[in-house]
Write a protein that binds this DNA or RNA. Structure first.
Lengths: 280, 280
DNA sequence: TTTATAATATACCGGTTGTCCAAAAAAATC
DNA sequence: GATTTTTTTGGACAACCGGTATATTATAAA
């Protein structure tokens, strides 16, 4: 990614942490990163999209860390699980993500809200899966309940600790929650107490598809924008791309070949690569 | 309270529920309640203060309901406790308070944030106290932990249920949480597992003092505002009131007598009554 | 060197909350 | 009923906000 763009994101990020999302004006970001307004809107279509970019970066970095934590260690190891949770929570704390998420919900921006919500559900799904790995299939029927319980305890505990400005270690909180879940597992396997259907989350698009949808819509948006100022020939090419990207299995080679013939195609090509690369 | 003012609050309230806090402009409120901008700012110094007023009203009404639920029934009755929790949660849900609170945090208004935070702590304190009443003194050492756990489970569960748009009854969620806490109580009294010091909350100003501080500051603000357009004689009276209200134990009768001699004292008198009335 | 692309500065738009004020209306007081 | 006080009105205004549009300049690719 563009060095300059990265710099803007970092400046914005630190401002968001420092002053909060809503309280940070675009003017502030411009001044801190020493760019002009025009440049800013070249990089990001809106303040919200900038925030999403920052979120995405944090998440992917966090997931990376989580991977590293578990690498070469047994999935049922409770310590590994705790460490993985800790990674996330500490990132959240360090980046004031709690506050930022809340800011999002007030923004009334549907896309942004959806993004945060989806992230929350992903996180829950992750925890549900990991809990099954840790405690075994016997807790499968209660896995979603347990995930929500564990999440709730940790989140509320941290929230409380932050509110009263007391110093309690994140790992102590997580361990505490883990011990409560330990006990709950024993108890629930006896009482067979179930609240939520384990498959509730399955109905919700998993992350990758959601991501892919985002990318597709971005690409289509760009094509649409280009059409407004395209000549006849270019327009035909663009229409083809539009149709192709909407196909079940868009053919990358063809699309790239066609795109080559379109003038001012840089952003288009960038978004197309983004669309076809399953990994970010 | 002024009928008209009440009407404005109701209009704003319904708009906030409908469209959210940030998305509701003052203009919207003016139109819905059919008043002018000038009048609005006569009633409320800002949009934030209006929101606080609404919160206060909801809270006091909810507390009232809670009182009624327990009236004449034993404090250790679990069903009573569950019903009381349910009252609050249903009010929250009905009034979209989750979303409104989040809107608050985005507003970056310090007073508003403090208010919501204080409310959260009050709620925790209430639950801590009630848990002791329900389970007895033996859980005293773990009461704060348990309160946070219970709160966290309920809140997260409800949040999740709303997110996935599934219909799960509020009371089912609360009962579920209650059963988890039941088990946790048994387990913890054996393991003696403690995370948070029970007295952590004591340090935080209880609601009444906080309230009183708010009223005092409002009163002082009004006095300050009046001073700017007061003649010499009036100014002397105002200065006296200012000093008196800052005393340990302000003398109501004296202040009221002095206030009578001040022209255009309506709002002043109103705020003074508010200040001296311990009950709203 | 030419040409395409990126970055700049700035004016502008419609929106926001909140201030201010003169004038009209309503209420309270004499 | 007349006078005074209080409340309400409605709109101009200021200072912001996010975002658009554009003409100009700088930079890099051909």
């Amino acid at each position: 990614m563009n060095e300059r763009k990265k710099k803007v994101m970092e400046a914005a990020h630190s401002l968001f942490i420092e002053k909060g999302y809503a309280a940070t004006s675009i003017q502030d970001i411009l001044e801190k990163s020493a760019i002009s307004k025009g440049t800013f809107y070249n990089y990001f279509p809106s303040k919200n999209e900038l925030l999403i970019s920052i979120f995405e970066k944090i998440h992917s970095e966090t997931d990376q860390l989580r991977q590293e934590v578990i690498a070469g260690r047994p999935v049922q190891d409770k310590e590994v699980f705790i460490e993985q949770v800790k990674v996330k929570m500490e990132v959240n704390k360090r980046n004031n993500l709690f506050a930022l998420f809340q800011g999002v919900f007030a923004s009334e921006d549907e896309e942004l809200k959806k993004f945060v919500k989806q992230h929350h559900l992903n996180e829950l799904r992750w925890m549900q899966r990991r809990l099954i790995e840790v405690y075994g299939m016997r807790i499968r029927a209660f896995s979603l309940d347990l995930a929500v319980v564990m999440f709730g305890i940790i989140q509320n505990m941290l929230h409380f600790v932050i509110a009263i400005e007391e110093n309690v270690k994140v790992e102590d909180v997580i361990s505490y929650a883990m011990r409560r879940v330990d006990a709950a597992v024993d108890e629930i396997t006896v009482s067979k107490d179930v609240l939520l259907d384990t498959r509730l989350l399955e109905k919700w698009q998993p992350n990758e598809l959601q991501e892919q949808e985002r990318k597709k819509s971005k690409l289509l948006q760009e094509i649409g924008a280009m059409q407004t100022k395209a000549d006849k020939r270019t327009d035909q090419l663009l229409v083809f791309l539009q149709d192709e990207v909407r196909e079940e299995a868009p053919r990358r080679l063809i699309m790239e070949t066609v795109a080559k013939e379109i003038p001012q195609n840089k952003e288009l090509v960038r978004l197309m690569n983004d669309f076809f690369d399953t990994d970010a």
